[in-house]
Structures are given as structure tokens and as C-alpha cells.
Design a protein around this nucleic acid. Structure first.
Lengths: 175, 175
DNA sequence: GGAAGTTAGTTGCATATGTAACTAGTGTCA
DNA sequence: TGACACTAGTTACATATGCAACTAACTTCC
């Protein structure tokens, strides 16, 4: 951090060169969001990764099923914002470890109804409080006012970028 | 509903079951950060991905070199928060496309001094304004007050999670 | 009722990425 | 000077992931 000087050989800082403010990576919102998201994920995975050797997709499935009880894979994906293949693989992983079970839906045999096994629920009940404590620690000392503003902006960014991302996909599909 | 017996028919919402607030994925900060970061990245990559067929790591190298002019790979990695292998591969990619050049540092032959070629700079000068406009659009309509609060919290989260993430790595190394 | 279209979920394939090992060059200390 | 420790950068390998194709099951519409 704070390596602004870097290699200042001939390495002249580039001047804005044109009207608007120059693009500085460390202030560029998409970059900053990615950095903070990956750092937070990495720190959090210390809690569940080390204890139970699961990854982010498995974690999300576990939490989703812990929250809803019984769900189809598709619903898990929708709720946890994961591609269906990711869900499929995470579920397979958790199934192999006997943390998640599935039974057929007799009303629609294409889908399986997923749920935590007792062992899976035990893991969930062990991890959830730690995860919540972690999230609370992260925000510790942030005033309620800032906190609310942060939530608002985060929600706005999510909504807007979701719209733009979908547009991008549609554009590609329409080709 | 506190059934150890798992499979509860009919997808009942699970009650908190214990004291603290239940863990709800859609409100869980690490999850939300990951979602927004990936959506924003996806939307942004529409700008540089479609136009020049480059990915996030290449984009970061391009911007970093555009900003600093000449740098070593290590410095690029430090500034853009990328693993050295990622930098190495991104640079190789950009070099293949003649957007980045390298020359040896005669004072230390281990490192190469990287910089944009004229073609690379042209790409940078074309993309940077669009990227900045994109970031501005994202935040459009956010009041300066909320904006400042958002920045503050984002910085705090980054710093804190960086500390925790480093701890996690050290712990693994020390084992 | 059944052909055509749609959907849930899995798998094949190509790509991306992190870890560890490696190469080559530099610094240190005796 | 020369062994040892360290560093910049690359590569090998295993894993993760997204897309596309696929299977099996459901729905529509005639």
C-alpha cells in the first residue's frame, strides 16, 4: 500500500492530457468494489474454509438451505446469485459430504428438492453465528447514518449494474 | 420447525431458532459485496471487452501503465492488487498484441520495465474516458453526502478486511 | 394424444486462476 | 570471493468456472 512513488525512472506520471479527471485505478469504483469484495471473501473464508474445508459456492448453498429449509437447485441459484452449473457442482460436493440431501419432487421429476441433512444443519448452526459476528465486526464503529447511506448506495449500484449487465448479455445473445 | 430430522416438507421459512438475528444471505455484507462487484465488472467489461477483447487483468495492467508510464511487473501487481502470476500472464497477453512493451532494467536484470506502446496508449486513451463515464453513470443521482459516506465505509472495509485476510494467510504459512 | 418447444439439471470443453516449484539475477556476510 | 539467503518473474499443475451441448421431464397447442 502507499506505493505511489513506485518506479519513477523516466516513469513520468502521466498528465491528465485531456479535459476530464484522469483515470486512477485506486479510485475507480469497479476496481475498488472488486478489491474489497475479494478481501472480505478471503477473510470470511478463513471461518468456514478452515473449519470445514468448503468454498464460496458450497457456503452459499449451505446458507440458502439453512435459511429456507427445502428448495430446488434453481431456486438456490436464484437466491444466491449463482450459475446453475455452479449450484449443481456445489450441491454435488455437499452431497458427497453428507451435508445436503435430495429427494425427487413427485410433481415434477426434473427437479430435486434439496435440504440440509442433520449433519449439514449442525455445520450451518455452527457457522452462521460466526459469520454474522464477522460481518458485524467489519462494520464495527460505523455510525448508523453512514451505515444507512452505504446500504442505499450499495443497493443502487447493484440494481443499476444488474440492469446494465443484463443489457450486455442480451446484446450478445441478439447478435 | 427445529427439526433435526431434516427434510421438512413444503419449503417452510426457517425461524431464527436461536437468539441473534438469523443469517440472511441477501443481507449478508460479504455476499452483497461480491454480487455488486461481479455485476459492475460484468457491465464494465462490456466497454473494454467488446471493443478490444481484453479481460479484467489486462485492463488493470493497461490502466496502471497508462497512469504511471513505466513500471516493473511487481509494481503493477502492487498497484493493481494482482497476484504476480496474473500480472505475468496479462502482460504476456498484452505484449502479444503489441499493446505493451518491455525493456530490460540494466541495473537489475531480474526485472523488466513495462510501458504502453503507442498502440497501447491509443487503446488506453480511447477506453479511459468511457470507463470514467461508466463509473460516473453508476453513481448518478447519489447525493454528495451519501457518496462521501459510501467512500468512507468502503475504505474502512477494505482496510479491515485486508488486515484480516493477511492474518489468515500468515496463519496458514505459520502452521 | 403427440409433436414441438421449454425447463431443470448435468457434463464436456476451453479458459482462468492460485500454489508451489523453478530459473535467473542480486545482496550479504564472513 | 563464495556460499547462502532473497527477489522478479515464469511455468507446471491442479482446481474453478462459464458456456454450450446434452438428457430427461414437463407444457403447449393443434
Amino acid at each position: 500500500m502507499t506505493n505511489d512513488g513506485a518506479v519513477d525512472d523516466g516513469a513520468s506520471e502521466i498528465p491528465p492530457a485531456h479535459e476530464g479527471a484522469a483515470l486512477r485505478l485506486e479510485e475507480f469504483l469497479p476496481y475498488r468494489l472488486n478489491v474489497v469484495a475479494s478481501l472480505v471473501s478471503q477473510a470470511l473464508s478463513r471461518i468456514y474454509g478452515q473449519r470445514y474445508g468448503i468454498g464460496v459456492p458450497e457456503w452459499r448453498v449451505l446458507v440458502t438451505l439453512g435459511q429456507y429449509g427445502v428448495m430446488t437447485g434453481k431456486a438456490v441459484g436464484a437466491h444466491s446469485h449463482m450459475h446453475k452449473t455452479k449450484v449443481s457442482r456445489a450441491v454435488a460436493q455437499l452431497e458427497k459430504r453428507k451435508l445436503v440431501g435430495r429427494r425427487a419432487n413427485r410433481a415434477d421429476l426434473r427437479e430435486s428438492l434439496l435440504s440440509l441433512t442433520p449433519a449439514g444443519r449442525a455445520v450451518y448452526l455452527d457457522l452462521a453465528p460466526s459469520a454474522l459476528a464477522f460481518a458485524r465486526t467489519l462494520c464495527d464503529g460505523v455510525g448508523p447514518h453512514d451505515r444507512a447511506a452505504f446500504e442505499r448506495v450499495l443497493a443502487l449500484l447493484t440494481e443499476r449494474s444488474a440492469g446494465l449487465a443484463v443489457e450486455a448479455v442480451k446484446r450478445r445473445a441478439a447478435k
